[in-house]
């Protein structure tokens, strides 16, 4: 996003937040249940599941797996899906090896900015739950962080705050792409011009290129009125 657009978007966000807070006067202080005689009987069976964004969509290899993931208990997920997720991750790398005319056997996942191997990363992601820290600031991840200035985006030496929930503004797709395709520096496949001809020679796989277009507010329920 261009800087001018960003400034415009920020002004808009501030304006929206202001109006949202002005309109938010429809607040009823009550615990009463209006009609507890409503019929809530019956058994409800699980049909969909979500923890982290995009995991089932991106890493389940086929429709049967996607449906199965939605009705698998989180405590059983790593055992059920880690291996197929790892195969899927490797298959994504092979797609680009073929496009680039390289040997698919030679283009593989590289340990990511958290230092996780393919098996560790897919094992972590296969248990599809969202970690939420009750007593720390929320950030799904901040891929811009390089607090110790070692050139790596984040080295997990214990004092970082990350993986503590998901804000409305968090760019969860870019974070996921960086963890899957970014390698140790987070930028392994990011449209580099390797031969200096002014054209990208490596694919752009560590960002989808879009920023938030919605306008979250600063007051409950934090999401803007429908469009």
């Amino acid at each position: 996003m261009k800087l001018s657009n960003l400034i415009y978007a920020f002004s808009y966000l501030v304006a929206i937040s202001f109006f949202a807070s002005c309109n938010n006067d429809d607040d009823n202080d009550t615990t009463m249940m209006p009609d507890m005689n409503a019929d809530f009987s019956g058994t409800y069976a699980q049909v969909d599941h979500m923890g982290r964004p995009g995991i089932n969509t991106v890493l389940s290899a086929d429709n049967a797996t996607k449906d199965m993931q939605n009705i698998t208990l989180p405590s059983n997920m790593a055992a059920a899906f880690q291996a197929s997720f790892e195969a899927r991750l490797e298959a994504y790398h092979d797609v680009y090896a073929n496009i680039l005319g390289a040997d698919p056997a030679a283009v593989n996942y590289e340990n990511n900015i958290l230092g996780l191997t393919a098996a560790q990363l897919t094992g972590y992601l296969a248990a599809d739950v969202l970690d939420v820290a009750p007593n720390l600031p929320t950030t799904y991840f901040n891929p811009g962080t390089d607090a110790d200035m070692d050139g790596r985006i984040l080295v997990p030496d214990g004092d970082e705050v990350a993986l503590t929930g998901r804000m409305l503004q968090d760019d969860v797709i870019d974070v996921s792409l960086i963890l899957l395709f970014g390698g140790m520096e987070g930028n392994r496949f990011s449209g580099q011009d390797t031969n200096g001809d002014g054209m990208a020679d490596l694919p752009r796989l560590t960002s989808d290129g879009v920023s938030i277009t919605a306008n979250p507010t600063t007051t409950f329920p934090y999401l803007a009125n429908p469009e």
């Binding site: 409800y44 923890g51 739950v129 970690d131 939420v132 990350a162």
Partner: peptide
């Protein structure tokens, strides 16, 4: 979590 911070492990389900 993966960085050793205290967290709730959360998920949402829909049920018919």
């Amino acid at each position: 979590n993966a960085l050793g911070l205290d967290v709730y492990k959360t998920w949402v389900t829909s049920n018919k």
